[in-house]
Design a protein around this nucleic acid. Structure first.
Length: 455
RNA sequence: GGACAGAUGGCAGAGCGGUUGAAUGCACCGGUCUUGAAAACCGGCAUGGGUGCGAGCCCAUCCAGGGUUCGAAUCCCUGUCUGUCCGCCA
């Protein structure tokens, strides 16, 4: 349920998350003026998202609301004027009863209009907050992941076509005695894993290496953020209200972050930052929590798809004109990790049917996984334009400039640690003894260990 | 968890029922002065929305929500956050 609590176009909304009585505040996701000026363009953008034309309903509500507001404002102006008169009369000791009665008489009408305005605002907000971002023109059309377009391939995949298929990561890990799904299931249920010994350390080494690279080499600021966030924040990056079912919610109305993107991006929420401080680049190594509600039966074996996994995330906040270049830069920062680890990968541009709700354009990096004989997603780098910024009311201002503008936000995995662990295990597997070589760049993080072997 | 005290423009900080959208200072912008700069002086400077070709006019906003009132930044209730003290605890 959505309740608008202001009667202006910059709708502040309280979004009742039922039992907790929590609120979400944020502006509309789209420039309603732009929709008003060019509804056809907006409808075309939604059509690419496989949605029917949205502008007729939006504009109908918008028009209705504005007419109610105009009517209301006339009465409010009258009230304000009369009340001032009463003040003057009373000051000079006169009798203001007549004027007071007149203002009282306006009250019913005002209450009715206010109620109506609120109701229409709710409807409009409900509608708008569930519409996806407008994609960039250069996003290829397509139905699903089959239509994503490969733009880069790096490295030589081992055993392509499965000539002698390598074991899958869970076979390797279980054989080593360092990857235990049964115990994890006992502790937590399905889609959890217990790593131990050098394999647990390898995961930590990967994270350390990624974090050091993103901070020291690529200039991201390391953050150690809260992992439990409020409803406003989840709304800001677009997880709510539409994807509530994918999220873990606490009993006191907070949410476990599904990705550090949520916290890092919201650092600038409700801020007006100075233009000179942009771009802001943040990175964090955090656990991520996801219900994986819609993926029953998918990737059930192994640790590819878990309710909890580690990820090093990159977030950038830029001026509008810089976001495209920043997107390319971020992609390179992610790809650089796989190159340093010498793991073959390919990069694809997601097609219109596969691009996420909040993204204007997304690159996926897929690492080669010999055990599956396939490239699998290991990073996703998206540019969101001002979509999240509008939801968060995150703006910037140039020095000397009177007006504020919405910032642009970008996010990318740099990389998903759990999946990267899988890639390392399968790519560095030694069939002669079932061990896993430690990649060169990780050795310093492994205390100089060369190879993980059973024992 | 208990007891107080707060929350006002980019920041600091007055106001505590009636032309207060809000004093003042800092910051910022324009100008005067100066060889240039600083200082000094003069002027400007909140946000969102509606309406108009436009100068403008109108509405809303002083943490959020609700209430009292002809009228609320100011009074009352609830929530959130911050500070201080006490208790508890990794």
């Amino acid at each position: 349920m959505l309740h608008s609590v202001r009667n202006d176009d910059f709708i502040y909304v309280t979004f009742h998350v039922t039992k907790f009585g929590q609120f979400i505040r944020g502006s509309t996701m789209f420039d309603i003026k732009a929709i008003r000026d060019n509804p056809a363009e907006f409808d075309a953008a939604m059509k690419r998202r496989k949605l029917e034309a949205q502008s007729p309903k939006i504009l109908e509500l918008d028009e209705e609301r504005r007419s109610v507001q105009t009517e209301l404002q006339v009465i409010q102006a009258e009230r304000n004027e009369k009340s001032k008169e009463i003040g003057t009369i009373k000051k000079s000791g006169g009798d203001a009863q007549g004027a007071m009665d007149a203002v009282s008489a306006l009250k019913d009408k005002m209450a009715t209009l206010e109620e109506k305005d609120k109701e229409i605002g709710e409807q409009l907000k409900t509608l708008l907050s569930s519409l996806p971002n407008i994609m960039k023109d250069d996003v290829p059309d397509g139905a699903d992941e089959e239509d994503n377009v490969e733009i880069k391939k790096w490295g030589e995949p081992k055993n392509p076509n499965g000539a002698n298929k390598a074991p899958e990561h869970y076979e390797i890990g279980e054989a080593l005695g360092m990857m235990d799904f049964e115990t994890a299931a006992k502790l937590s249920g399905s889609r959890f894993v217990l790593l131990s010994g050098p394999l647990a350390r390898l995961e930590r080494a990967l994270a350390q290496f990624m974090l050091d690279t993103q901070t020291e080499k690529n200039g991201y600021i390391e953050c150690s953020p809260p992992l439990l966030v409020n409803t406003d924040v989840m709304y800001g990056t677009g997880q709510l209200p539409k994807f509530q079912d994918d999220q873990f919610e606490t009993t006191d109305g907070r949410w476990l972050v599904p990705t550090a993107e949520v916290v890092l991006t919201n650092i600038v929420r409700e801020e007006v930052v100075e233009a000179e401080t942009l771009p802001c680049r943040y990175t964090a190594f955090t656990p991520c929590f996801r219900k994986e509600a819609g993926s029953a039966g998918k990737d059930t074996r192994g640790m590819l798809r878990q309710h909890q996994f580690y990820k090093v995330e990159m977030v950038a906040v830029t001026k509008p004109e810089d976001s495209d270049a920043e997107h390319e830069r971020m992609l390179k920062c992610a790809e650089g990790i796989l190159e340093a680890l010498e793991i073959p990968y390919r990069t694809v541009v997601l097609c219109s049917g596969d691009t996420g709700f909040g993204a204007r354009k997304t690159y996926d990096i897929e690492a080669w996984m010999p055990g599956q004989n396939a490239y699998r997603e290991i990073s996703s780098c998206s540019t969101c334009g001002d979509f999240q910024a509008r939801r968060m009311n995150a703006r910037f201002k140039a020095k000397g400039d009177k007006n504020t503008q919405f910032v642009h936000t970008l996010n990318g995995s740099g990389l998903a640690v759990g999946r990267c662990l899988i890639a390392v295990m399968e790519n560095y597997y030694d069939p002669t003894d079932g061990g896993v070589f430690v990649p060169e760049v990780l050795k310093p993080y492994m205390g100089g260990l060369e190879k993980i072997v059973k024992g």
